[in-house]
Write a protein that binds this DNA or RNA. Structure first.
Lengths: 221, 221
DNA sequence: CCTCACTCTTATGTATACATTCACGCACTC
DNA sequence: GAGTGCGTGAATGTATACATAAGAGTGAGG
């Protein structure tokens, strides 16, 4: 694999995991030494991270890991509502229910995975992510897909912040089930509205979960 | 200005203007020679163009100017509907009508600009762009703003393709007026729906205009 | 005559040397 | 004592040399 690709993935992973905390400086020489490559591929990786919104130029010379406070999470969900709502609407409108029949079963069985410990949790998120993939693919819109991929990066970052309440995840699974059913039924309005409902409840849970962990509500990491 | 920034702007301008046609190869050495800088800043510029969606990797080694056919224009408008609809909705919800009062007058006077030749046309688009700016700013959502800026790049590219029918532009101005009025009134639903209507009519015109110029409907440039 | 493989060309990928600019600190002046 | 200006240093910005790999062209073999 290309060194720039390795550097990008390594840095991205560390930002999503929180190993690189919000506000941490991303200096070329330092990261190049740490990752064992030269400045050139690091430079490319940092540019991609900035384009992704995971890194932000604090000034002309200093790049930092982007902040992740309550306000930016609300912003993320406002954007997700627009993009995922439209994706669900388009997917429903394409009238290809057969693409989603296998996924429907998988989502329907997801709640039971939550009793299988950490392994089950990964499987649960695997099913949810597969649904996102299929909706994006069914929407058949490359530009929308690119925007969704960016948003999903940030969503993954938020996901690691919120506690994983089995109760909430069970509810989320039934919300996803409604989304997939409305797509299968070709009901575009319902698909969009069910997505809106899901994101609303998901945001409420995320904010409460973060508030519980970081009572000030601003600096969350 | 930095060489990479100059290279990026120069290439972007040429792509938006059509001087670099869809499918044109973007080779590092060739562009570096042409722009009078070394490969390094060109490389950064090309990476940014690819992130913008203005360039596409045709294979592992060849980067091309992105295609601009009817299908990708439809995709763009599907994305615009999601993003601009949400932006208008948020802007209306923020209840800051005073931000838009001066702009309202400017938009209301826009149709008359269309009788002033090329200079007036630029002024017309200046007013429209200012509205877009203010809606983005009023939406107060950095992530949405970043997505909107990407979309507006592509919109600018499409704009140059469609003929500028004064009749259509006069109608568009009244659509914009309704959008701005609904934001001033704090009517979020109306703002979103008016945006939807505007984009629908705009897309219809763009497709018809392109079809008239390129009867096959696929390779438009 | 077609196909496959090898080589050679030419592109990109990476490392590094050099240029430039900004920031910090110290000293000098008012 | 405060403020300004210059010097020093360390960071990014750029150029270029070198490494590597993809692709085209040519040759031989079927």
């Amino acid at each position: 694999m290309r060194a720039s690709e390795r550097a990008y993935r390594a840095l991205r992973e560390e930002i999503l995991d929180g190993a690189l905390e919000p506000g941490a400086a991303l200096a070329e020489v330092e990261q190049a030494n740490r990752l064992g490559v030269s400045r050139t591929p690091v430079r490319e990786a940092l540019a991609r991270l900035e384009a992704d919104g995971l890194a932000t130029a604090a000034s002309a010379r200093v790049l930092q890991v982007s902040a992740l406070d309550a306000a930016s999470i609300v912003s993320l969900y406002e954007l997700r509502e627009a993009l995922e709502g439209q994706a669900a609407r388009l997917a429903a409108g394409r009238r290809e229910p057969e693409r989603f029949t296998a996924l429907r079963k998988r989502i329907a069985g997801a709640p039971e995975l939550l009793d299988s410990g950490d392994e089950g949790l990964r499987a649960y998120y695997g099913a949810v992510d597969a649904l996102d993939d299929e909706i994006e693919s069914a929407a058949a819109n490359a530009m929308l897909g690119a925007a969704l991929r960016s948003v999903r990066l940030h969503s993954a970052r938020v996901r690691r912040l919120a506690r994983h309440h089995p109760e909430r995840l069970r509810a989320a699974a039934s919300e996803h089930l409604l989304i997939v059913d409305s797509i299968i039924a070709g009901d575009a309005d319902l698909a969009a509205h069910a997505t809106h409902v899901h994101l609303h409840l998901s945001l409420r849970h995320a904010l409460a979960s973060i508030e519980a962990r970081h009572p000030d509500g601003h600096r969350v990491a």
